[in-house]
């Protein structure tokens, strides 16, 4: 089942001065439960593409349909609510809330959704344990290593059981061991929870873990398929 469909998607920055075609007519789709890597050189439009399907930016042209609903026409407030209920984000720089513990960071989205405290506690500890940072639950981000922070960030993204997770270069700041561990955990959660995970990378080790590769260059998809065929 296709959960994300893009049609003739375009994003042009500075259209009136020096136009930059960051995304240039992408039409593609993503199936439920996919573990997809968007790859390509720096500046090829990976982040912009992820931002567009995450509703963080509005396309210049084209349409994005998520779960059968066009998000291109949604209002800002509707889009915020849509993200809260359906999308989890993982960022390159972890972006945990520094004044909150690992537990509170993961619980944050569930509290925004007014979930019962008992449910929050069970879910947060389940995720932190699954990500191997259960013993760090009450530590603040600055007390964790980069790899541990990113695992907490993935747990946060999964907390509300979103339909899919968008991860922008989640391993870019991690060493090879931490990268390996994180990807294995993400794969495990993808299989266990059935969450669609789309992430961008230009790291060859990461690409090899993906079930599907979408190669981009100059804002366009140039190859699309399984890692051995793409």
């Amino acid at each position: 089942m296709e959960v994300i469909i893009t049609k003739d998607l375009e994003k042009i920055y500075n259209p009136d001065t020096v136009p930059v075609h960051a995304v240039n007519g992408i039409s593609t789709s993503f199936e439920a439960g996919e573990f997809t890597a968007i790859v390509g050189p720096s500046g090829c439009g990976k982040t912009t593409f992820l931002n567009l399907i995450g509703g963080l930016e509005a396309p210049t042209q084209g349409d994005i349909s998520i779960l059968g609903d066009s998000i291109s026409t949604k209002k800002k407030s509707e889009m915020t609510d849509f993200r809260l209920h359906n999308i989890g984000f993982v960022f390159q720089a972890y972006n945990l809330i520094p004044v909150m513990s690992a537990y509170e960071n993961v619980a944050f989205i569930m509290e925004l959704l007014n979930r019962p405290q008992a449910e929050i506690k069970d879910r947060v500890m389940e995720l932190l344990d699954a990500m191997g940072v259960g013993d760090k639950a009450h530590q603040r981000p600055h007390q964790l290593s980069g790899g541990q922070q990113q695992r907490v960030a993935v747990a946060r993204a999964l907390a509300s059981k979103p339909k899919f997770i968008l991860a922008d270069e989640p391993t870019a700041n991690l060493d090879s061991h931490a990268t390996e561990t994180l990807l294995d955990l993400m794969l495990k959660m993808n299989e266990k929870e059935g969450t669609t995970i789309i992430f961008s990378t230009h790291d060859i080790r990461v690409m090899n873990k993906a079930r599907r590769l979408v190669k981009m260059d100059d804002g366009k998809i140039v190859e699309n398929g399984k890692p051995d065929t793409a």
């Binding site: 963080l56 800002k76 915020t80 609510d81 984000f89 960022f91 809330i97 989205i109």
Partner: peptide, 10 residues
């Protein structure tokens, strides 16, 4: 930006 992308409304 992070908080708003996670779904914290205006």
């Amino acid at each position: 930006g992070m908080l708003r992308s996670l779904g914290l409304n205006d």
